[in-house]
C-alpha cells in the first residue's frame, strides 16, 4: 500500500509542479506573487470541459489549445492589469492579483454555477497493474503530460533567445534593460507563459478531477505553498515543493484522515519554513 501511495503522490506532485513552475516563472521576471494563479487552472479546466462537451475533443488532446488560450489570456491580463501595478507597493500588487482571482472565481460561479462537473470518460482510462501497485491511467497520462510541458518550457527558457532574455531579467533587471532587452515585452510574454503552464495543468487535471469554481482556491494555495516551500526564485525548489505536497496529500489522506490532508500539507509547510525561512532550495536572506 505504501508504494502505491508514494506512486500516486508523485504523479499528483508532477501536476502540481507544472502549476508551481508558472508561478515561479512569473515571480522571477516581475516580482509578482500571482495569487490568482489557481483561477487560471480552473478556467483551463472549464475550457477543457467545454472542449469535451461541445467539440468532442479529449482533454488530453485539448491541452495544446488550452496552452494557447491561456497564454493569450495571460498576455491580456498583463496588458490590462499587471503592468500598472508591477511598480506599486507590495500590498497593492498582492491585492490586485487577489482581486483578479476573486473576479475570475465568481465569474465562473455566475457563468457555470458552483456545481461539480466531471468529464465522463477520458480517452485514456482503466488501471495499469504492476505487481501490487495499481496505477490509474488517467492520472499517469496527466502526469506524463505535465512533465512533457514542463520540460518543453524548461528547454525554451534555456535554449531560445527569448528564454535567455527571461533568465537575464530574473538575474538582473537593470542589466538586462541596459543590454537592450525590452522589459515590458518580455514581462508580458513571461506572464503569458506562466499562465499557460497553469492552463496546461488545468486541461490535464480535467481528465480526472472535479471541475468547479472554487477548485481555484485549492490549486492556487497549493502552488503558492509549493513555491514558498521550495524557495522563491528556484524552479528546482518549486518542483521539490510540489512533489512533497503531492506525497503528503496521498500519504496523509490514507494514514491520517482524508478530511485533514490539506491541513496536514499546510502544517508541514509551516513546519519546514520555520526551520528554513527561505524555503528548501531558496538562496540568501528571506
Amino acid at each position: 500500500m505504501f508504494i502505491q501511495l508514494v506512486v500516486s503522490g508523485l504523479l499528483l506532485g508532477c501536476i502540481y509542479s507544472l502549476i508551481s513552475m508558472g508561478l515561479s516563472l512569473i515571480w522571477g521576471v516581475m516580482g509578482i506573487v500571482n495569487f490568482a494563479h489557481g483561477a487560471f487552472v480552473m478556467l483551463a479546466m472549464y475550457a477543457a470541459y467545454y472542449g469535451d462537451q461541445l467539440l468532442r475533443i479529449d482533454p488530453l488532446l485539448f491541452t495544446p489549445v488550452a496552452i494557447l488560450l491561456l497564454f493569450f489570456l495571460g498576455v491580456l491580463v498583463y496588458q490590462i492589469i499587471i503592468q500598472y501595478v508591477v511598480d506599486g507597493p507590495y500590498v497593492s500588487r498582492l491585492l490586485a492579483t487577489f482581486g483578479l482571482g476573486f473576479f475570475l472565481i465568481n465569474m465562473a460561479q455566475f457563468l457555470w454555477s458552483p456545481n461539480f462537473r466531471t468529464i465522463k470518460e477520458s480517452m485514456v482510462h482503466g488501471v495499469w497493474k504492476i505487481g501490487s501497485v495499481m496505477i490509474e491511467l488517467p492520472k499517469l497520462a496527466s502526469s506524463l503530460g505535465s512533465i512533457l510541458v514542463a520540460a518543453l518550457v524548461f528547454l525554451f527558457i534555456r535554449k531560445t533567445r527569448t528564454g535567455q532574455a527571461i533568465q537575464a531579467i530574473s538575474a538582473d533587471k537593470m542589466g538586462a534593460a541596459l543590454m537592450g532587452i525590452n522589459l515590458k515585452r518580455i514581462a508580458a510574454f513571461s506572464f503569458g507563459l506562466g499562465i499557460a503552464c497553469a492552463g496546461a495543468a488545468g486541461s490535464l487535471l480535467a481528465t480526472f478531477y472535479y471541475i468547479f469554481p472554487d477548485v481555484a482556491s485549492l490549486f492556487g494555495l497549493i502552488a503558492l505553498v509549493a513555491v514558498a516551500l521550495g524557495g522563491f526564485g528556484s524552479v528546482e525548489g518549486a518542483f521539490l515543493g510540489a512533489l512533497i505536497l503531492g506525497l503528503v496529500e496521498t500519504l496523509g489522506g490514507y494514514y491520517v484522515d482524508p478530511n485533514w490532508k490539506y491541513a496536514l500539507m499546510f502544517l508541514i509547510y509551516l513546519g519546514i519554513v520555520l526551520i528554513r525561512p527561505q524555503g528548501l532550495l531558496g538562496r540568501g536572506k528571506v
Binding site: I81, L95, A96, F98, G99, L100, G101, F102, F103, L104, I105, N106, M107, A108, Q109, F110, S113, P114, P213
Partner: peptide
Amino acid sequence: QGLDLMLYGALII
C-alpha cells in the same frame, strides 16, 4: 450567483 462578487473583485483591481 457571483455577479456582485465579480464586480467587487473588479473594484479591488
